[in-house]
Simulated scan of single mutants.
Amino acid sequence: MRLFPLLGLLGLLAGPAAAVCDGPSFADEMTEAERQAAAAEAEAMPYSEGLFWEATRGDRRITLVGTMHAWDPRLTPMLDSVRPAIEEADLLMVEVTPEEEARMQEALAEDPSRILVTEGPTLPERLSEETWHSLVEAARARQVPGFMAARMKPWYLTLTLATPPCAMTDLMAGREGLDRMILDAAEEAGLPAESLEPWETVLDVFSSAPEDEQMEMLRLAAGPPDLQTRGFVAMLESYFAEETGRAWADSRFAAYRTPGLSRERADEIFELTAEDLLHTRNRAWIARLEETEAEHILLAAGALHLPGKQGLLNLLAESGWLVERRPF
């Protein structure tokens, strides 16, 4: 089972702008025992701190940047730190290029059934009135009208609700995160860009969950919006402190407070979600990097792809690359 309410974290950070998503942080309400446990979990993770890295092996070099997928004013100086690598690299690799995004939009326009219910009962017919009312209010808070939410497939609506309402202003205004900022700077510098994977990859992960599991996750998505916002604020704090391992560990304790979700189930879902969305893709990306002939690659991907035993940095180190942290 996948815990879709964690997707905002797992994209790392499909996160919001700090100027909009501010206020209380979930990290401030954790108990001392929870803080110690989260710190211990983060400390046990290889490469649990740092967003800017360089891996070298022989004549080859990979500059890695852990990104956040939505805009924040604090990203601008981070981009300035990356500009020398943009000028020096032979190739930029990102999770998805604008060209792949365009192909995705074309495919979804041609076949809306990938994300929408085109036949059979819609969501309000499959959920209790109380649950559907909560979901409609949550969707409207994210500028999604109820009639549109009713036609979404369960996994797609849950994914939509993974971004808290406070993040929607910047997203709707087209203000994008460090990935796109790097892509724009690369285009200006004449640096070619390639996707690390086809656009279908992540959508296939989401949509492959059994229907009953999708419905369960959708019910959980109707949980307290204030908990989600406080969790995003905590995530932002960890990201700009370059504490990716701590962002992961803190989010586990936030999940423990989700109504209807036991601690054991949360742990199980956390591990399965990490395998689906992070580890499997990381291993595929490493294979792709090994096959790429470019001598110097600049890789920009969501920050949670970096830490951990199955993170990009440890996988590179195990493949004989010398991995060193760089200051932002």
Rank of each mutant, 00 (worst) to 15 (best):
E29A: 06
S25W: 04
A18D: 09
S25I: 01
P46Y: 10
A33S: 10
A18Y: 03
L12E: 11
E29P: 00
S48P: 03
L51R: 03
M45I: 03
A14P: 06
E41M: 15
T31E: 13
A27G: 03
G11H: 14
P24M: 05
L12D: 09
Y47I: 00
A27D: 12
A38N: 13
L13Y: 11
A33I: 06
S25V: 01
Q36F: 11
S48K: 03
E49C: 10
A42M: 14
A39Q: 08
A17Y: 05
A42K: 02
L51W: 09
L13H: 09
A37H: 03
E32Y: 07
E34F: 14
A18S: 13
S48D: 02
G11E: 11
D28L: 12
M45F: 03
A19K: 01
A14N: 11
S48M: 07
L12G: 14
E34H: 12
P16H: 09
A37W: 03
Y47V: 00
A44T: 06
G11N: 13
L51E: 01
A37E: 07
V20D: 10
M45L: 14
A40Y: 01
P46Q: 11
A44L: 03
A17W: 03
L13T: 09
A19P: 00
P46G: 13
A40P: 04
V20G: 02
E34S: 05
A14T: 08
A42E: 09
G15L: 15
E41A: 15
A38H: 00
G50R: 00
E32D: 15
E41K: 11
C21K: 00
D28N: 12
C21Y: 10
R35H: 15
M45V: 05
E43S: 15
A42D: 06
A18P: 04
A27F: 04
G15W: 06
P46F: 12
A37N: 04
P16Q: 05
A33C: 05
A39R: 03
E43F: 08
M30P: 02
E29T: 07
A42H: 11
P46D: 08
G11V: 05
A14C: 04
A42F: 12
A33E: 09
V20C: 03
C21T: 07
A27S: 11
A44I: 03
A44F: 06
V20K: 07
A33K: 05
P16C: 14
M30R: 08
E49L: 01
M30T: 09
Q36C: 11
E43M: 08
